[in-house]
């Protein structure tokens, strides 16, 4: 379970782990590293992780945060799991489009749509 100083809110729903960010800005490298380590810990405890990351509280990110998401995606795939992203602010979604990472990630408009996309 995350520590009291966790940068994440984690919950379970129908076999899916829902991860939400505490911070509005996912920029600070120390925060990003902590977020990456926490989510990696979640992935390691599940045989075929089904992970939904919600950006509902996020209004800024950085290329380092994108890098962490890519690492998370690779870890989930290596375990035969599934990763979904949802609730991305339009300005942040533009960053995914500019970097073409909207082609790499499975992105949904909201949590409900993402939940129903798991196989």
């Amino acid at each position: 379970m995350p520590s009291p100083e966790s940068r994440l809110r984690v919950s379970q729903d129908a076999g899916v782990t829902l991860v939400e960010f505490v911070d509005r800005n996912i920029l600070d490298e120390a925060n990003i590293q902590q977020i990456g380590e926490e989510i990696s810990g979640i992935i390691e405890t599940r045989p075929q992780p089904r992970l939904l990351i919600s950006f509902a509280n996020v209004d800024h990110l950085s290329s380092a945060a994108l890098g962490t998401l890519i690492t998370i995606n690779n870890k989930v795939r290596n375990k035969g799991g599934q990763l979904r992203l949802a609730n991305i602010d339009p300005q942040i979604y533009d960053v995914f489009v500019i970097t073409r990472l909207n082609k790499l990630f499975n992105i949904h408009a909201d949590t409900s749509a993402a939940m129903s996309s798991f196989q």
């Binding site: 994108l66 690492t71 690779n74 500019i98 990472l101």
Partner: peptide, 16 residues
């Protein structure tokens, strides 16, 4: 943004 680089976790700062 090249297909072969999409999975690389670094190298997007300058392009952004």
């Amino acid at each position: 943004t090249l297909d072969e680089n999409l999975n690389r976790p670094c190298g997007r700062g300058l392009m952004l």
